[in-house]
Design a protein around this nucleic acid. Structure first.
Lengths: 242, 242
DNA sequence: GTCGCGCTGTGGACAGGCCACTGCGCTAGG
DNA sequence: CCTAGCGCAGTGGCCTGTCCACAGCGCGAC
């Protein structure tokens, strides 16, 4: 096995057995290299991989917060991987769209089922959803990029309510991976003002369904909402469309 | 921006604009370093990240097949990311289970909708599914690891029929990430022989539903099948369970 | 008591070298 | 003329050594 892969395997093992936990600092690169019997560049390769995957964060300097810390940004790695594969040309954007629709509509259904008893943290998520919804419903037309920002708050807020961290991370990653395509697609919609207000109405309906605990309504509304937008933005494949 | 991230960005750009496509070879590390104005270790950091993400494959030697080639193994990166986050302790296995169930049941529904007209390549996938099914139904008890191997062929074969490469990659990645937990869970099932034959019957039902083009039946059967197994193996969270 | 400077530990990066591996082409032998 | 063997060149794999930028902390001067 190659040197940096050995380092990766050892770091994984140390995380698995609890030696290094979330938020803690890894030993310095020099120390790590000596411990694992490899050179510093090899350690750096391994840590670069971990950083790209969203496992660690590297900071220069000294004192608390410096060095390499174990963080938790699962969406970083997933988003990066998806974006790169789109760039490589083998992953159609339409597939990303279909996967998002499937995953998110399920998360919305689940969120509706859980909305009856929320923890305080989840209450905050719900508040963020409501805030995004109100900001979108404010009178006057919204710029595309402003709308997309609020749209993300709304959608991801509901997903967060479902409590599935992996689904949340994947959806965040997918969204970031195709953010460019979404922005392009939204920019070429014939009548943005009309589309925007329709999307807002649909958001309201989804929100109400979730709040009412009506999972299957929330699911189908969400499904239709996502597909309709992508179809209008020219990002949905023909074959995938249900 | 850091040196190796610049390299990543430039490589992504070159893939996006079609300069470097799938299957092609990147310039050598030394040449790449000179082109991009960075040192070779920085180039190696970037390429290591790409390799971990399943974008490229590095090979030593000379001639065709040597050097760094752009490949397409999306599942590699996704699986690695998920496995690492589980190791870091912030991603519950139950979340992986729930995400798998949601994604796969949707894929199965979609596969059923498409089964009427298959391309030759998809016909092969269907053949693989059938072969796995028959092997599982062979008389005599199957060892756990042998069953799991066939189980993977069966499930992933159907997913492949749905034609969504991202869903396929994510599911492959998830499966590899929790393979260890699945094996442990299966090993502690009270009566493996009984469980095994039940799983086989469920497989047969799913297969028949897909072949009949009955998407919603296939979906719900698949959903129940996945959850039942994980519950039995002690991997399903309480809260997620529908 | 407070301000400022330097020390120390951290990652960031580079240069240069050496090794292992692999395929191709040349050359010597049949 | 054909073939088997060897050497060469190009590739990644890895290491050593070095220097730089950055940030906090503590010591010392004021």
């Amino acid at each position: 096995m190659r040197a940096h892969q050995q380092v990766l395997a050892q770091i994984e093992a140390k995380m698995l057995d609890g030696t290094w936990g979330l938020g803690e600092r890894l030993p310095g690169e020099r120390a790590l290299a000596e411990q694992m019997g490899v050179s510093r560049p090899s350690v750096r390769e391994a840590i670069s991989v971990l950083e790209a995957l969203g496992i660690v964060k590297m900071n220069v300097g000294s004192g608390p917060g410096a060095g390499t810390q174990i963080v938790d940004r699962p969406a970083v790695g997933l988003g990066m991987a998806v974006r790169m594969h789109i760039a490589a040309g083998t992953l159609p954007v339409a597939d990303v769209v279909a996967t998002r629709a499937q995953l998110e509509s399920g998360a919305v259904r689940h969120a509706a089922a859980l909305v009856a008893d929320l923890s305080p943290a989840e209450g905050e998520d719900l508040g963020a959803v409501r805030a995004a919804l109100r900001a979108m419903e404010a009178p006057g037309p919204l710029a595309v990029d402003e709308f997309l920002r609020l749209d993300e708050s709304f959608h991801m807020g509901i997903v967060r309510l479902s409590g599935n961290q992996l689904t949340e991370a994947i959806l965040t990653g997918l969204r970031s991976a195709i953010a460019m395509y979404i922005a392009q697609g939204a920019a070429q919609v014939p009548d943005w003002g009309e589309t925007c207000s329709r999307l807002c109405r649909e958001h309201r309906q989804i929100y109400e369904a979730v709040l009412a605990g009506d999972g299957s309504a929330a699911e189908s509304l969400s499904h239709a909402h996502i597909w309709a937008f992508y179809a209008e933005a020219g990002l949905a494949g023909e074959r995938e469309h249900p």
